Amino acid sequence: MASEIPIIDAHIHLWPKSEIPTIAWCTPENPLAKQQSVHEYKAASASSPPKGFIFIESDRKNDLDAGAKDGSGWEGPLMEVSWLKRIIIGQLKPDEGHSSEDASLCAAYIPWAPLPSGPLAMEKYIERVKEDAGESWPKVRGFRYLLQDKPNGTMLQDDFIESLKLLGRKGLVFELGVDQHRRGRGQLEEVVEMIDRAHDGVPEDEKVVFIVNHMCKPDLEVYNTRTSTSFIAWRTAMFTLSKSNHTYMKLSGGFSEMPDSLKQRSPEEIFEALMPWLTIIVAAFSAERIMFASDWPVCTVGVGDGAWTKWKKIVERLCSMASFDDEQTRMIWSGTALKAYGIES
């Protein structure tokens, strides 16, 4: 990769040790149940320091019903917004793992939002985020409601669809996290229908942008992709999703979906194993709608401290094997993220 091409890491999570109890999935025995802040991230990515990163909400505890009524169920997600604000404005609290010189690293952040509660609750919530974010509000470029573990049909409810349309009208993206590996073909089919409904009858400039996380989490343990129904369903979904120019794809999350034995192999060997999936992503979305993302620190589980650098080498090899020119390569490493999130470079 040309050294002059800046890196925007389009998917990381951060939290201070003091707020771990507010994270829904982070039990004390979880290997990530320790401080994961800017200083730790900078150490992990020191081999090729990114110009910036995009923070994605970390699934803080919340109560949708209470939040829709009086906002009392939103404390955890709003606490996360305040935490990002402290990083961005260089406001220091003891032992939170960032300093004033780190303020410019956060290129954008994507908080949680209660999309199932409908557009009225969303309007109220967005105003709360704007208030709590203060001067960091311009860096809020969209919202996420993690769908990978939610009941079937959640994303197809009328309130959810209307919330997506609201984001589109406000010029905010929707961060899409689903899991084909564990949820199967049905979740991908729901995604296709959700996007169609969210865009149906909407003016082009008001259609919500979907930024797809982790290649939809395909099953990277498949041995024979030519006969695997799982792979075929995933491949079909990728080409279908790519038909909308309002969808973008993150090259991320691979370590979490591959067998443990593969995680420990060299970047070159991992790349060869992932070729069937990576080829489809490139063919479907092209460099102009693909972005590099590490999924740090989740990427370290089962891989170790060198995970960030290992994933970067895999993406570098993809750029080389795909014979991307300088402009296409720049899009992968930073340009697509800047475009998709509407970030001024």
Rank of each mutant, 00 (worst) to 15 (best):
M1F: 04
M1L: 07
E4Q: 10
I5M: 10
I5F: 10
P6G: 07
D9M: 14
A10I: 03
I12C: 11
H13E: 11
L14H: 06
W15N: 02
P16D: 15
S18R: 15
I20F: 07
I20Q: 06
P21G: 06
C26P: 00
K34C: 14
Q35N: 03
Q36M: 13
Q36F: 00
H39D: 10
E40C: 15
S45G: 07
A46L: 02
P50E: 02
F53V: 13
I56N: 08
E57T: 15
D59P: 01
D70H: 07
D70V: 11
S72C: 07
G73H: 13
W74V: 00
P77I: 15
L78K: 06
L78D: 04
M79Y: 03
E80K: 02
E80H: 03
W83V: 01
K85S: 07
R86M: 04
Q91K: 08
Q91E: 10
E96N: 09
S104F: 08
Y109I: 04
P111D: 13
W112K: 11
W112P: 10
G118L: 14
P119F: 01
R128F: 03
V129Y: 09
P138H: 06
F143V: 15
Y145C: 00
Q148C: 15
M155P: 05
L156M: 01
S163L: 00
L164S: 04
L166V: 02
G168D: 01
G168L: 01
K170W: 05
G171F: 12
G171K: 09
F174S: 12
L176D: 07
Q180R: 10
H181T: 07
G184M: 05
R185P: 03
G186S: 11
Q187I: 07
Q187S: 05
E190H: 03
V191R: 05
V192F: 02
E193T: 12
A198S: 13
G201Q: 04
G201H: 07
K207N: 02
V208I: 06
V208S: 08
I211V: 13
C216V: 12
N224L: 06
T225H: 12
T225R: 01
R226K: 09
T227R: 12
T229G: 00
S230G: 05
S230M: 09
A237P: 04
L241M: 09
S242T: 02
T247H: 01
G254T: 12
M258T: 02
D260S: 07
K263R: 14
S266D: 08
E268S: 12
E269A: 11
A273S: 09
A273H: 08
L274G: 03
P276R: 05
L278D: 11
I280G: 06
A283M: 10
A284L: 12
S286E: 13
A287Y: 09
E288D: 11
R289D: 05
G302C: 07
V303Y: 05
G304E: 12
A307M: 09
W311L: 15
I314S: 00
V315A: 11
V315I: 14
A322K: 04
S323Q: 14
Q328A: 05
M331Q: 08
I332L: 12
I332D: 10
S334Q: 10
G335S: 09
A337F: 07
I343H: 08
